[in-house]
Nucleic acid binder design. Structure first.
Lengths: 197, 197
DNA sequence: ACCTGAACACCGTTCAAGT
DNA sequence: ACCTGAACACCGTTCAAGT
């Protein structure tokens, strides 16, 4: 740790990302400016330009990091020892928790990005997260606990439902506690359908 | 139609909204500026301030109009003469079409707004749209075509699923044609569930 | 290789003054 | 009642120059 403010920051890139993530969480994307970020990090306003080609590149990097964390959270919540229904409930709750705790970040993750190479990595990030769901479906199909059919479609059906409540909750249209409270019910309907048996 | 450019515009408010909606669709929220809007409308840069307290107020107005149009689209797609499954498929397709044709607007509609009074109207807009779904569920329950239980929860389950694919598609994470192609399947799973019968 | 300072072309918002 | 023009405090981005 150098005594005051050295000419070279050392790890400006990750310092900017950390600062940006905090601002995003506390004040929203609208209040995120490169100049303000530079000020907080004690660096000139032009310095961020060395590490991020433009503002969108920084936002893309934030979103990408978000996908990494989401994939971790889901992987951690995936417990193959659990029966199907609680296994899915745990995954749903994990996603919901991530969505409510990172509402602004989630919006960034699912926004249309402009930089084409970032979009590619974004898709890969989605795949990694959807992977946890896909494993559950494929595994359950093998045990005859889930209907036969294209596992990708089944996974997408399930993913869409989870993403739906998560997005509605993150957007403030659904109360977080309410969403958590109905997760079990939701998974039940997902498994048993709306039609009476 | 006055000959050149009169001092008073006449209906500046709706002219600004029209222009904003076009810009939103063609270039995205990022490229939407009040000054540019004023220029396009042939008015001074300070004029919009008379009709919208700030930029967010204009965005809120756009989102609100979006809810109106979505409610219309859904109401038009709601055909009580159809059997349950095609009735739901039609609603899902209508929402999906709206989402793909108004991707940027949809993001605005489901974003956290700051002006508290707008948030209230926003919630009302959601209710109106969800209303179409709620009617289908309540009606189907009466005919024994859908399981018993809190109709609001069932509606929300269904709404979350539809919103999920729509949001993923609007966000570019799911190809629009692919999403349309799997709509029928999706509704099938919604009705019959993932568990084998 | 990394950062600064000045410069450029934009913003949103406010407010006296004009019609 | 509605709009203008100037002013203010911000932006993002670029680029020569400094370390």
């Amino acid at each position: 740790m150098p005594e005051s403010r050295p000419y070279h920051h050392g790890d400006l890139r990750s310092a900017l990302l950390d600062s940006a993530e905090r601002t995003l969480r506390e004040k929203g994307v609208g209040s995120l400016s490169l100049r303000e970020l530079a000020r907080e990090t004690g660096v000139s306003h032009a310095a961020p330009g060395r590490h991020f080609k433009d503002k969108q590149a920084l936002l893309d990097a934030l979103a990408l990091a978000g996908y990494d964390r989401l994939a971790e959270v889901l992987a951690a919540a995936y417990d193959p020892a659990l029966p199907l229904q609680p296994r899915l409930t745990a995954l749903a709750r994990a996603y919901l928790a991530f969505a409510t705790e990172n509402a602004e970040l989630l919006a960034l993750m699912y926004a249309r990005k402009h930089e084409p190479e970032a979009a590619e990595q974004m898709a890969a990030g989605v795949d990694r997260s959807v992977g946890s769901l896909g494993r559950v479906i494929a595994d359950a199909q093998r045990h005859g606990e889930v209907v036969e059919g294209d596992p990708e479609r089944l996974t997408l059906f399930m993913g869409a439902t989870l993403h739906g409540i998560a997005a509605l909750t993150a957007g403030g249209l659904l109360d977080a506690d309410e969403a958590f409270g109905m997760t079990e019910d939701l998974i039940h309907h997902l498994l048993h359908g709306l039609k009476p048996r």
